[in-house]
Amino acid sequence: MTDARILDRGYRPYDGPRLGPAGAVRSLARHTAQRVMGLKRPAAAKILPFLSAAIAYVPAIVFVGIAALVPDERLTTEFLPTYGEYYAFVASALVIFTALVAPEALCPDRRTGLFGLYLASPLTRTTYLVAKAGTVLALLLVATLGPPLLMLVANVLQGLGPDSPADVALLFGRVVLAGLELGVVYAAVSIGVSSLTDRKALASAGTLLVLVLSGVVSSVLVEAIGAPDWVLAFNLGPAPTELAQRIHGEPGSVEYADVATAALVGTWLGWTALGLGVAGWRYRITKVVR
């Protein structure tokens, strides 16, 4: 006698709940985040995303550790960076993520034709793009919000941070606002450039080109042609970081001393609108291969 039995694998209808377009957006966002971070993909795909996370977090962890191990107030006030200054440490992580990692969110779907399958689901072009852009923004916020929040929590716990709850709340608000400011503009630029090509390498090169050219052109215009200083606000490298520092109420760099905050906000709005506008236009006209 054996205990073998026939296993009925006949088709089983599904009569459970269906989550509709909102569930579709959530699923797409989670899948995109996994893909961008290289999860469930070969080891090589994990290198750059985790490198950028490490670049963003390691300095914060080190500074928090130093402050804990060397409880000298002079050390924390004179040698360790302020919250506003910390964004300079995050900048390279943001560039790596924006140019080399984030294009993974959009390009492969069009290249493999998976975009067509998504549009055959409850997703629309708009909800698809919202899910993708939202995911890129959320991942960027991990780098722009996480380290300063870590420092804030650690400093408060060690008695090195703001004393009153009101000051803590104010600093928390500034951290969130500055993190959003940086995350939104870089997400918009990455999404905008990535929407123009289905090749990730081209999107990466294009994003780097936009980042570099924005600096070169604005510097040449100001220094060689004598354009007003506010033109420097177009530089996608230091200008968003400068604005983040001003959100923290800190003076920022000498180079930007004559650039008004309004100019920084205006160019921030301009780059964000341009990136999202290009992506929106591109996905409205993109033909689907079926």
Partner: peptide
């Protein structure tokens, strides 16, 4: 979206 939730679609082209 409601129609597409109730419909399965297999496209002609290799799209995976």
């Amino acid at each position: 979206p409601q129609v597409r939730a109730l419909v399965g679609y297999s496209p002609e082209h290799r799209s995976l």
